[in-house]
């Protein structure tokens, strides 16, 4: 199993080492996650682990959730996510995974997925980094406009705007993955992970942390 956990973003700060180097870090509360269900090829068509993270009071949950968690011998969970596996799972329902797994497998880099902060309807400058128009030299009321969206005459059937043209529109609130973040520290006592740099989403947002696919 690839070392992975569900986590909650706590916030960002910085740490200073003995050499005086300052590292920006994100603090995440990761796990403990209970395996609620083990999916396999025979019954479900694919191998996966279903993680439950953070207890929720039974009276705030629903009967189906309580019953499902009860099969794994635990209470209902706030967040439930799946981890796809290549092979059959070595873990069974009811097993608990903690941040210790990152230490045991000597993980150096992690990928962190989450839902980014919503920015609403954003213009081309904010959404795509367009340059906008000039501040003066006769420009009026168009300082942040995206400019030309292309000559239309010669595109296919004509009179069309190219598909996928970068324009203003809704920004944020999508799942993004920050890759290859250096794992700075693992705090088993408090279930904390410290990674270098930023991760998607607001403080308190749900994250999925896993060993980096591409590095380390």
């Amino acid at each position: 199993m690839i070392p992975s956990l569900l986590a909650k973003k706590v916030g960002m700060t910085r740490i200073i080492n003995a050499a005086g180097d300052v590292t920006p870090v994100t603090v995440m509360q990761a796990g403990p996650c209970t395996v609620l269900q083990v999916k396999n090829k025979e019954t479900d068509g694919y191998d996966a682990l279903q993680f439950g993270f953070e207890d929720v009071k039974p009276h705030r949950s629903t009967k189906p959730h309580i019953g499902h968690a009860g099969k794994a011998g635990t209470g209902p969970k706030r967040s439930v996510r799946e981890l796809r596996l290549d092979d059959e799972s070595t873990l069974a329902a009811g097993d608990v995974v903690t941040v210790g797994i990152f230490e045991e497998s000597e993980v150096k880099y992690v990928d962190v997925s989450g839902t980014t902060k919503g920015k609403g309807f954003a213009g081309g400058m904010k959404r795509w980094g367009f340059g906008g128009q000039l501040a003066s030299h006769g420009v009026e009321r168009k300082h942040r406009s995206p400019g030309s969206i292309g000559g239309h005459a010669n595109l296919g059937t004509g009179r069309n705007i190219k598909k996928g043209k970068k324009m203003s529109g809704h920004m944020g609130s999508v799942r993004k993955t920050s890759r290859c973040l250096e794992l700075v520290a693992v705090d088993k006592e408090n279930n904390l992970l410290l990674v270098k740099g930023s991760v998607p989403g607001p403080n308190g947002g749900l994250l999925f942390v896993r060993q980096s696919k591409t590095k380390g």
Partner: peptide, 14 residues
């Protein structure tokens, strides 16, 4: 809670 966690982490490096 999260505020306390942050303070605890920062304290270690102060």
């Amino acid at each position: 809670m999260s505020q306390q966690l942050m303070e605890m982490v920062e304290q270690r490096y102060q």
